[in-house]
Design a binder for these strands. Structure first.
Length: 360
DNA sequence: AACACGGGGAC
DNA sequence: GTCCCAGTGTT
């Protein structure tokens, strides 16, 4: 009696079909080398790919473009970035969010220079040892720059695979399975394949629309066959966002300079610049002004973070002298070069102080 | 495994 | 308002 054949479960990702689609529809980006140019021998610059990938962590392409432009103009190589003062890097990052990325970016550039002779490691394994480079980013750089045949799994790829397989588990429980499916399908053109999967997720297999009629992976897609692709991936239960409140104090010198200080090394907006303020609490407390002078209320600011929302009452005063504690005066023209997160740009705006965009 | 960690664009 | 984005590090 013959052994029953092992059940054949064909991989739903047809790499050839996907690459053929990518050759015609690849998105153009400043850090990318187009498929035709790669054929001609052009290679991506690991520095630019790394910078873009870090900026793109939990951040949209539209938002990243101008920051990428600004960073590469100011710091064309990893050595330039490594040599830059920390405050300048944080200031250039201001507004992009997730500021641990900027701190790790700077540390990573310095590690590449100090420990790797100024060249990025060429394997995912080596890249992953660097600060700010995790499972996704290490695989992405290795695939895109060096065509290492590794699974590159980001939010786009998770969504695509979840629909291809009608994955019943929430994605966070199914990461290994997704990585396995993608890993089996990676062809020699690993970099183009990785970018093709992400382009597919960004343009055709998008979060709220699935244009299955033009999808190159439609023949193997269980979600398309069942007509319920949009029901995947299954969303985990959502938790609610607590509300916090506090005060912010805008101290203005007669010449218009604003009193600023540096935030703590850890926690929210670590190492970034702020105006003085109270703690952020569950219930509003009385203001604890940083110095004894005539304070007037200058509006309220609402700001939403990932895991809580914040409402700050803004107070404003004129000052002839410095308040106690560490800090510095920043003149109006210099404010745009401070490492001010969006929250504090809102605070200053509420006090009638408009911080000009930091870049052109 | 769960949570901390920003901000903005699309709907 | 909601969703979610080319995720990483910490606990």
């Amino acid at each position: 009696m013959p052994e029953p054949a092992a059940p054949i479960k064909p991989n739903p990702i047809d790499a050839d079909a996907l690459l053929a689609w990518y050759d015609r529809h690849a998105r153009e980006m400043p850090w990318r080398v187009a498929p035709a140019d790669k054929v001609a021998g052009e290679r991506p610059d690991p520095y630019r790919v790394w910078l873009s990938e870090v900026m793109l962590q939990q951040t949209t392409v539209v938002t990243v473009r101008r920051y990428f432009e600004d960073f590469t103009n100011r710091w064309p190589t990893v050595a330039d970035l490594a040599a830059a003062p920390r405050e300048e890097v944080l200031a250039a990052w201001a507004g992009l969010g997730y500021y641990a990325r900027a701190r790790n970016l700077h540390a990573c550039a310095q590690a590449v220079v100090a420990d790797h002779g100024g060249a990025f490691p060429t394997s995912a394994e080596g890249l992953k040892t660097l600060p700010g480079i995790g499972a996704y980013t290490s695989a992405a750089i290795a695939a895109i720059c060096f065509d290492e045949q590794v699974a590159v799994v980001d939010g786009n790829v998770e969504r695509v695979v979840a629909r291809l397989t009608r994955l019943s588990d929430p994605v966070r429980n199914a990461k290994p399975l997704i990585g396995e499916i993608v890993g089996e399908a990676v062809p020699e053109r690993a970099g183009d394949f990785a970018q093709a999967m992400m382009d597919l997720g960004a343009t055709i297999c998008a979060p709220k629309s699935a244009n299955c009629l033009v999808c190159p992976l439609r023949p193997g897609c269980a979600g398309a066959a069942a007509g319920d692709a949009l029901d995947f991936p299954v969303a985990p239960p959502k938790k609610k966002r607590p509300a916090r409140v506090g005060h912010a104090y805008v101290l203005e010198r007669p010449d218009g300079a604003i009193w600023l200080r540096r935030r703590a090394d850890k926690g929210m907006l670590a190492e970034m610049t702020e105006v003085p303020g109270s703690a952020w609490t569950d219930d509003q407390e009385a203001p604890d002004f940083p110095m004894d002078t005539e304070w007037r209320e200058a509006g309220e600011v609402e700001h939403v973070f990932t895991h809580f929302s914040l409402r700050l009452t803004v107070w404003q005063a004129r000052a002839g002298e410095e308040p106690p504690g560490e800090g510095w005066w920043s003149k109006p023209g210099a404010l745009s070069r401070e490492a001010l997160p969006t929250l504090y740009k809102k605070v200053l705006k509420s006090a009638g102080i408009d911080v000009k965009p930091p870049r052109l």
